[in-house]
Amino acid sequence: MIDTERRRLLKIAGTLILGSMLPIIPCSASSPGRSASAAGAGRWGMVIDPRKCPAGCRDCIDACHAVHNVPHIAGPGNEIRWIRQVPFQNAFPDQGHPYLDAGRRDVPVLALCNHCENPPCVRVCPTKATFRRSDGIVVMDYHRCIGCRFCIAACPYGSRSMNFRDPRPFIRTVNPDYPTRTRGVVEKCNFCEERLAKGMPPACVEACGKRGALLFGDMTDPSSEIRRLMKDRPTIRRRPELGTDPHVFYIVS
């Protein structure tokens, strides 16, 4: 305890002294993450195969929402987004054309946080409530978020949602192991970092199971299942031209 106390005091002193030098410290340096080692990953990523999604299947979405106490608020523009289905041309606005295979055009695409390598939401957050861990997961510290919604404006994928009202009355079944959010903070997909810490796969991937539409793994490991799949099948990413370097890949063949 004394040790923690001393570390805290040092941190306070350090903050005071280095306060003026802050601008030169890159923002990622302040969030040294080690949890990747918990499951042994260097860089988490996901591959989605939309054609393996059975029509009308919402297993992954329901699993995610149940695990994370995501509220269900009815009405257009009210839904809290962790993982959701969007029409193809909304997920890939530059890829739609009249001759697109109808099977592809009409099948909804799963959209979630891309856990970008260069996330604009992290860049704009005025409190570092959103930060990028060294294993690539872009996480939110709900204790710190002030609800300015700058990150929502910055995210090119619509992956973030604001709690405009108290979410608790809108949660169908409460999972006591995961906190809810309060009104006034932003929330989003966290790649189930709390499950990864226990060595479990993300809830959506687990729910998808053998259907295999969702695959999760370490991008830095060439022998990982996810990398082997990407070697065989061409993949695209959402809005790569923005330079965000998304780490959710979509199989196109």
């Binding site: 805290r8 930060f131 861990r133």
Partner: peptide, 12 residues
């Protein structure tokens, strides 16, 4: 401190 360690540093 626990909160900081878990949420921000991933030390559980």
């Amino acid at each position: 401190e626990w909160r900081t360690e878990v949420v921000r540093n991933g030390r559980r």
